[in-house]
Design a protein around this nucleic acid. Structure first.
Lengths: 189, 189
DNA sequence: ACCAACATGTACTGATCGGTTAACCTTGAA
DNA sequence: TTCAAGGTTAACCGATCAGTACATGTTGGT
């Protein structure tokens, strides 16, 4: 399998797992949905778990790149960028296929923190926190890491509730909370 | 099966699903872990899904009663009670068996909003929002429903991250955000 | 033209899935 | 004492699980 075909497989597997869940999607169904035979899949991934980890790595890269691009497109100044996180979120919620966060779902199905899949999910959230802290640093907030952690909490809560309730309302509420948090952090200077 | 035996089954099934996940725990294993034979289980629940719904109903009742009791024990005034939500959360996070929220996990495994299990999870969150709004109403905040929705977002985000990262830090951060939200809502009066 | 590499579908493994059936055991009330 | 209710174990159903074996293309380099 060429590198690009492998990428295509991982991409399609990602879509299937995202829609269906990790336990719920079996390897036979995955082969059917990706158009790659089970034999070929197992040539390049020793186990289902390895394939899942590959999809999570792709999703991590995909999501963080997308978020960075949207944030930078929506605001130039760091303060505005922290708020733009939640404008970007709203865009995401409005996409037709939105079904919560891949990593929240992964940690829901693989709950033991020692499990590689759980650890990968935790790492994704940590990378997001670091990214938020980088932006917060530029605002000269007193505690950029703390500000980043607070914004991350709001982001995760918004995702969960956008999946369960009316996402329009949730996005607006999350943005209100974020504005509150950022204003307070910057007023303290 | 007597009513109390049935309750015991649902209680034990709840613990198994909470620990292991809904898809991951099969009916054979469930029978073993609950001590109730598969035959007896199917006498009282026509499908696995019905049993899951029963465990979710129990969990909803259990959790909201527990939260109400803790909040009322921790604070007498409504403003303090809104903040006490997050003290109660911290207590929960510190329990040995804490593994995120049953309903977040349920909505992660049953993602279609038309699915009864998904709908039950959504309903649980809605009941929490209503409860928070009842407390917020007593504070004379201008928009108690909005305040409740904001606090719910923070609560859900805190739960997700407490499951993935250091729960002590998460609880503290969530409480900081909550204080911020409540102060702002009450300053507006 | 030939060969090796890689893809494929099909069929298989043993285990487990959700759910059912049947034969047996215990209990308490008539 | 008998009988029915409701429990048990155990085997079974067809489907699907993760993963493997194998024989058959298809492809590109030499």
């Amino acid at each position: 399998m060429s590198a690009s075909k492998r990428d295509e497989l991982v991409q399609k597997a990602l879509a299937s797992f995202y829609k269906g869940g990790f336990h719920a999607i079996g390897m036979d169904r995955l082969a059917k949905e990706t158009g790659v035979s089970k034999t070929a899949i197992y040539k390049h991934f020793r186990t289902k778990e390895e394939l899942i980890l590959a999809t999570l790595r792709l999703r991590d890269e995909q999501f963080r790149n997308w978020l960075r691009r949207r944030i930078e497109a929506l605001a130039a100044e760091p303060e505005g960028q922290l708020l733009a996180i939640f404008d970007a979120l709203e865009e995401w919620f409005e996409e037709a296929g939105f079904r919560s966060c891949m990593f929240i779902k992964a940690s829901s199905e693989y709950q033991d923190s020692s499990h590689p899949i759980h650890a990968t999910a935790a790492e994704h959230k940590r990378l997001l926190s670091i990214y938020f802290a980088e932006i917060a640093q530029k605002t000269n907030a007193q505690d950029p890491e703390g500000l980043a952690r607070q914004l991350l909490i709001v982001k995760e809560g918004a995702i969960v509730l956008a999946h369960l309730h009316e996402h329009k309302q949730v996005a607006a509420d999350a943005r209100t909370v974020a504005k509150n948090i950022v204003d307070t952090a910057l007023a303290d200077i």
